[in-house]
């Protein structure tokens, strides 16, 4: 199934990689450079993306703040959000979860697993 994904990462390298990976899986990718950008892009996406992938450490609005903001928007309450993180530290996972993250992917990500994870959370 082709999915619509919003990917939020401040690193151009990561955005390129996500776009490539998701593109190869036949997904459509929308990119944003930080949390605020992500919210802006999300607002303009209709229908809403099937899932969101977001980095944590970003300028302006970080991943935690971004997820919290997304969850506060009624129509996006149920959207799956995967967190991209270089840390597997439990503390970060807990913070992401408390913010409303659906799951996490540890960077560097294995393209296959990323795609599988997306398929999993989107059904």
């Amino acid at each position: 199934m082709s999915l619509n994904i919003l990917a939020v990462d401040d690193s151009r390298t990561m955005r390129d990689m996500l776009k490539l990976t998701l593109g190869q899986a036949g997904f459509t990718t929308h990119l944003a450079e930080d949390g605020e950008d992500g919210l802006a892009v999300l607002e303009n996406l209709d229908p809403e993306p099937d899932a969101i992938i977001t980095d944590i450490n970003m300028p302006r609005l970080d991943g935690f703040g971004f997820i919290e903001a997304v969850r506060k928007i009624n129509r996006h309450r149920g959207i799956p959000i995967l967190v991209l993180t270089t840390e597997s530290a439990q503390e970060l996972k807990t913070r992401a979860r408390n913010a409303g993250a659906t799951g996490w992917i540890v960077k560097p990500f294995d393209p296959e697993k990323l795609v599988r994870a997306l398929q999993m959370v989107t059904g």
């Binding site: 690193s11 300028p59 270089t86 960077k107």
Partner: peptide, 14 residues
């Protein structure tokens, strides 16, 4: 400063 190093690490890992 932190993010700069962090992002380099992230990309380097990939």
């Amino acid at each position: 400063v932190f993010r700069a190093v962090h992002s380099i690490k992230g990309g380097a890992g990939a």
